[in-house]
């Protein structure tokens, strides 16, 4: 038998607990914190504007913004403005993200596409797309064409970058495995590369669509009678803060919905991650 008793008996008074040094670095989930932040912020501005601490010149009371929003719904103006905007956003991001994913895959898979297109994409990325709006009006017309093109162009570059990054990150071991079983090339792309890159592509889409919403306002600066962006710009020009904020709230809600939609898509398509 090995003797495991200590050589010298220490006094009981010397005993002390091992200090805990782990923990942290693992943010958990909390359903309510986000809501509480919103409510607290809105309550703060409501009280502030009502009591006059915050001047009504700088900030409308949230309740007045809510009333404006409600009037928008009642008069049907909301749909009149939201409809064209949603169309522009949907068409623009569909074209931009769709083309972005295709080009991203090409860059991730083919030497020539990578060598030829990566510098181009890097050159296009930092261009402020808003600056190109007048040019797009000349190219695609003052109607829907220029607006869709602006959003498409703006969502294209971040989607390309996210997609080819995701394709680059695909597990080479899985591709070797598929090759070793004689799986045809196209099937490797659709059944190994695509599923493995999907997480990265979806998180890229989150960014791209948010940029799409930002560009929506810019796209409606020229030649738009209706649209959330046009509505905000008009309110801004008239210094009608309540309508300005009502428009901003609509864009925020749009952003939240898009983000929630992608979240739902992730939960569904990336179920295997557990």
């Amino acid at each position: 038998m090995v003797d495991l008793s200590p050589a010298r008996q220490p006094r009981e008074a010397d005993a002390r607990p091992v200090p805990f040094r782990g923990g942290g670095f693992a943010p958990g989930r909390n359903r309510w914190a986000g809501l509480v932040v919103f409510v607290a912020l809105i309550a703060f501005f409501e009280v502030g504007t009502r009591t006059g601490v915050i001047s009504s010149l700088t900030m409308p009371p949230p309740s007045a913004v809510a009333q404006t929003l409600w009037r928008l719904v009642e008069t049907g103006l909301l749909w009149q403005n939201l409809g064209p905007s949603l169309y522009r956003l949907a068409m623009g991001s569909l074209v931009g993200c769709g083309a972005g994913i295709l080009v991203g895959f090409a860059i991730g898979l083919f030497t020539l596409a990578r060598a030829g297109l990566v510098p181009l994409v890097s050159a296009l990325f930092p261009i402020p797309k808003i600056a190109l709006l007048p040019l797009f009006v000349i190219w695609f017309g003052i109607g829907e064409g220029s607006k869709v093109a602006l959003i498409a162009f703006g969502t294209f570059t971040p989607t390309v970058v996210a997609t080819f990054g995701a394709v680059d990150g695909v597990d080479r071991g899985l591709i070797r495995m598929a090759q070793s079983f004689g799986v045809p090339w196209l099937r490797i792309v659709t059944r190994v590369v695509l599923p493995d890159a999907l997480a990265g592509i979806l998180s890229g889409l989150r960014v791209s669509l948010a940029i799409g919403i930002v560009l929506l306002v810019a796209a409606e600066m020229l030649g738009a009678r209706y649209g959330i962006g046009a509505y905000i710009l008009e309110a801004g020009a008239l210094y009608d803060l309540e309508r300005l904020f009502a428009g901003v709230v609509i864009l925020s809600v749009l952003g939240l919905l898009v983000s929630a939609g992608i979240g739902a898509l992730e939960r569904r398509l990336l179920r295997w991650r557990g």
């Binding site: 071991g173 070797r176 070793s180 079983f181 004689g182 799986v183 099937r187 190994v192 493995d196 295997w272």
Partner: peptide, 30 residues
């Protein structure tokens, strides 16, 4: 014989998005 030279890899190389059956079917589907 469907695949003459067939590997078994050290780190398994299973498709994480496919079930056990899906992983076996993956090499049969084509």
């Amino acid at each position: 014989c469907l695949n003459e030279l067939t590997f078994v890899f050290q780190h398994f190389a299973l498709l994480p998005w496919a079930s056990v059956e899906g992983n076996v079917r993956f090499v049969l589907d084509h």
